[in-house]
Design a protein around this nucleic acid. Structure first.
Length: 294
DNA sequence: AATTCGGGCTAGG
DNA sequence: CCTAGCCCGAATT
């Protein structure tokens, strides 16, 4: 029996501590965006010198804070909502795997849970869960023997129980087993899409009602660095009037980030909401657009 | 621009 | 049944 992994082992890793700075900066900017705070003011607000703040930020997403802000400060994501994306579902399969905006999602395999297992709330199902650092705070991951079935977030260690309960509540009858080592490889793949390949697929298990799984599968076809709206998704699913229902289903996405629910915004470009916090959605969209060179 | 309002659809209790 | 939800568009300040 190996010793239980501890969170202190994660502390020295960069992504989490960087995200803490980024998160506080984004929160400050969001509440004060009307004042157009300068980079210096934001640095002061998070308790760092301007140059240190700049350095941490660049390490986090490769972009200066100022450039990053233009993308997400005002909670408008219009730049990601290109007209030619109007029918992403078709476009995704036509484009295949080539092109600058690589459709990494097609490397992900997914399968719906059998109806029986879903109806019983996961009775008889063993789910291993654990914590790993990520660019967006502490990631809380859950996996069955078929693949990754849950991914949530916590700002710090104190938030881990809530995130765990949030995931566990989706399969109330399943047995939850703490196993950080077991989920570590999933975390490594999930947050480094460059590693995704057909040789090493990231296996996903989507557990939900039919309509929800349909919506989550559709999310997988939204390319990195792009976005769509709840209404567009509804149309693609052949239910043009179901935008709100789509929103509800998107909000229940159990494998956040990997199933990119953060790439869905309101029809006006407003970010609307996010189950794991709007700040985190801002961070993800900015991080991705920066990485996509766009 | 920024709010308000009613219509709309689905999952879950 | 009922209610709530990561909505949307038009109408109204």
């Amino acid at each position: 029996m190996p010793p239980a992994p501890t969170l202190t082992a994660l502390a020295p890793m960069e992504p989490c501590s960087d995200y803490d700075v980024v998160r506080r900066a984004l929160e400050h900017l969001t509440t004060r965006f009307r004042d157009q705070p300068s980079t210096e003011e934001v640095a002061a607000a998070v308790g760092l010198s301007p140059s240190h703040f700049n350095h941490v930020f660049r390490r986090w997403c490769g972009l200066s804070p100022k450039a990053f802000l233009q993308a997400v400060t005002l909670d408008r994501a219009r730049g990601l909502l290109r007209r030619e994306d109007a029918n992403l579902l078709d476009a995704a399969y036509e484009l295949g795997l080539s092109g600058p905006a690589r459709l990494h999602d097609l490397f992900v395999t997914h399968e719906a849970m059998s109806p029986g297992a879903f109806k019983t709330g996961g009775a008889g199902l063993d789910i291993r869960w654990g914590v790993a650092p990520s660019p967006f705070g502490l990631a809380v991951l859950a996996a069955t023997d078929r693949g990754l079935c849950g991914l949530g977030f916590a700002d710090d260690e104190a938030g881990v129980p809530d995130a765990r309960d949030d995931l566990a509540g989706r399969w109330p009858a399943a047995r939850m087993i703490r196993d950080d080592a077991h989920v570590a490889p999933y975390a490594a793949l999930a947050f480094d899409p460059a590693l995704w390949s057909s040789d090493r697929p990231l296996r996903l298990v989507l557990i939900g009602a039919d309509f929800q799984v349909e919506v989550w599968r559709a999310l997988l076809s939204i390319p990195l660095g792009r976005a769509t709206t709840y209404g567009r998704l509804a149309e693609e699913l052949g239910r043009p009037k179901a935008a709100r229902a789509v929103g509800a289903a998107v909000g229940r996405n159990p494998i956040s980030f990997v199933v990119p629910c953060h790439r869905v915004v309101g029809a006006t470009g407003a970010l609307t909401g996010y189950h794991w916090g709007l700040t985190r959605k801002r961070a993800m969209l900015g991080w991705e657009t920066a990485g996509a060179g766009g």
